[in-house]
Design a binder for these strands. Structure first.
Lengths: 360, 360
DNA sequence: CAGCGGGATGTGAGCGGTAACAATTCTGGC
DNA sequence: GCCAGAATTGTTACCGCTCACATCCCGCTG
């Protein structure tokens, strides 16, 4: 075991502080834990000794006796993506004042990976785990976990047999579909995400239901993989079909790819084809045309999941199985009534331009 | 101190395993640490006892004596943004097999926040710290840290007085500028990021140098805040100026905003104005037109920083002060020779369409 | 003025591991 | 058949902290 800091003398411990302050180690402990029964003067000299020595309590020693690590684990699918990254950010921000948060960013969400990550966290001694589990495989893996620490899932769909928080995808999809229908479209096509994703499935059923409810015919389902390229490829396939007038995309990226393909084929958005996305990524207000989309508040999702987890750590039973968060539609310029023809590039709606976001 | 799991009986400890296997606790320890001198049969019975009891070594106890937490801390600016998120992902992926990684996502990078986050990590007992420090304030804060654990900065510019890894922004900016100049443009305008960002400054100087080197006049510097809205606002201001024919944007988001503003004013990209971005976010290949931009490999940056940090933890001195990573230009369709006029929407270059990326 | 309650402080015993060393059991060589 | 030396296992002492309890000192009561 090569020690990290070889030459340096050992850092000061509580006994050193006690000696310098002329008290017992227990008194130092009392000061550190702000125990009431310490004379102000004593506290002062202890604090002075702590400062002079640059003493830091040893977390491992404290954990050993208190059995509290004040650490949470978050396992997530590829955290470089917008959704997971936003949830993670929400979680971390909310947790920072009371817990350390450890992460595991998996390149895949198969059973083994998820279980492996959870196991690592358990070895580390986390007090609770959040799994950002947007795929069915992850949900399945989570329900198999038999840990003695609470676990909550996020973005795992609203029907998972787990304590969880999720955006109501079906409602969001219905919102988008109805919006297009209300605009006067006969029906709405849907470019879905991969079937292995819970969100994709729920959005499909939301779309189906809205269609059925309105008595609109259900076109063949189109399936992408969430990425721009897949939306583009599908767009190339459908651009030639004149009956495609309204498309609800499973996410903004596929919508972007679709819009590009339509543009290449000379079909104007929204004049010839109306497009609605899902997610409301920061860029979508500036697409050409600005994208009408369904916004889901990832940050809020993360915060809610964290709050639930902390409640459970504190011994409260989880209030509900799944905490649903309602998404809402952000109407911009990519969808319009079927007949309408647009001339020049429309001015950006002011609301969108007012959104501020700093980023590199 | 309310215990997390009240009713449950205490989890098994090494002594329990020893008792069940009929050996001493030390032998159990030897098995766990794969010590060579343990008889195969003994190892077997210990392993069986471990499995039967579902025993997990207590990390705190081990840390207390070995003085190794196997934990790293990463402090970063808002990890929901593409750059930080990608670096974080690169770091975590590379570290996962040997270290736990704890994160702190700060909403601001002022001295107090950064120092506070570092302090928390020190309290936690991390063995090393990586700071994603794209702002000058963060760099300043880092150089003030006097920790007894190694610290490396990422994305902090190539001249910071710290062990660090950074993309060579100046080189990237020069690349973009020269590209536009070589296309035949008389000069190149630049929309920079905020002055408080190291990357913004370095890109400005790269742009200046390339201009000077080519003997091109230097137009007034335009400053945004990295966000789409700022690019859009600046675009509205400059769209009317016919002398603006080539613009190098500090990042892809501002380029997107700019392109939208230009479109609204009837100026075609690249026919009337050529624009080049920076970052190469996943969406930029699908913008209208596909964005020519400078790609920086954030993931690689993270991995390199991590490798350096681990080297330092292992006692090796850092090889160089700043590890530079060269960005490269990705030529797509948003920049062309000044005279050229485009008819229909250009087909997407195949190279871009071939890029695959799965994301929610 | 003895006795008493409670605030302030000290003492000793672990928490669950690992390291150093001691003890025991096997080996093989002569 | 005996002993050196290696292989295997056990014993004991911490790592740095908190908890339970003992102690001490003080003013106050009866």
């Amino acid at each position: 075991m090569a020690p990290a800091r070889a030459g340096r003398s050992r850092p000061p411990v509580m006994a050193d502080v006690a000696r310098l302050a002329g008290v017992s180690h227990q008194t130092v402990s009392r000061v550190l834990n702000s125990h009431p029964n310490v004379k102000a003067q004593t506290r002062g000299s202890v604090l002075a000794a702590i400062a002079e020595l640059g003493y830091r309590p040893n977390a491992a020693a404290r954990t050993l006796v208190t059995r509290r690590t004040r650490t949470l684990g978050v396992v997530s699918f590829d955290t470089s993506l917008y959704g997971p990254a936003s949830m993670l950010y929400g979680i971390e921000r909310a947790a920072a004042h009371s817990y350390f948060v450890s992460i595991a960013s998996l390149p895949a969400l198969d059973r083994r990976s998820v279980l492996g990550a959870v196991d690592r966290f358990l070895d580390q001694g986390v007090e609770g785990i959040i799994v950002i589990a947007p795929k069915t495989s992850a949900v399945a893996a989570c329900s198999r976990v038999r840990a003695n620490v609470p676990l909550v899932a996020v973005g795992c769909g609203t029907h998972a047999p787990l304590t969880s928080a999720a955006v109501d995808n079906a409602a969001g999809a219905a919102l988008a579909t109805r919006y297009l229908l209300d605009l006067g479209h006969r029906t709405v096509h849907h470019i879905a995400g991969p079937a292995s994703w819970v969100d994709a499935q729920e959005r499909i059923s939301g779309w189906r239901e809205a269609l059925a409810q309105a008595g609109a015919p259900e076109p063949e389902l189109l399936s992408g993989d969430w990425g721009c390229p897949s939306g583009y490829r599908i767009g190339q396939r459908i651009a030639a079909s004149p009956e495609v007038r309204a498309v609800f995309c499973g996410n903004d990226h596929m919508a972007l790819g679709l819009i590009r393909a339509l543009a290449e084929h000379g079909r104007r958005v929204p004049g010839d084809v109306s497009v609605v996305g899902f997610d409301d990524i920061p860029e979508s207000a500036y697409f050409l045309p600005p994208l009408t989309t369904v916004r889901q508040d990832f940050g809020e999702l993360g915060r809610r999941a964290l709050a639930t987890l902390i409640d459970m750590i504190d011994g409260h039973p989880p209030p509900v199985s799944c905490l649903r968060i309602a998404p809402h539609l952000v109407a911009r310029a990519s969808a319009s009534a079927p007949g309408s023809r647009l001339g020049a590039v429309p001015r950006l709606p002011l609301g969108a331009a007012a959104e501020e976001r700093e980023h590199p």
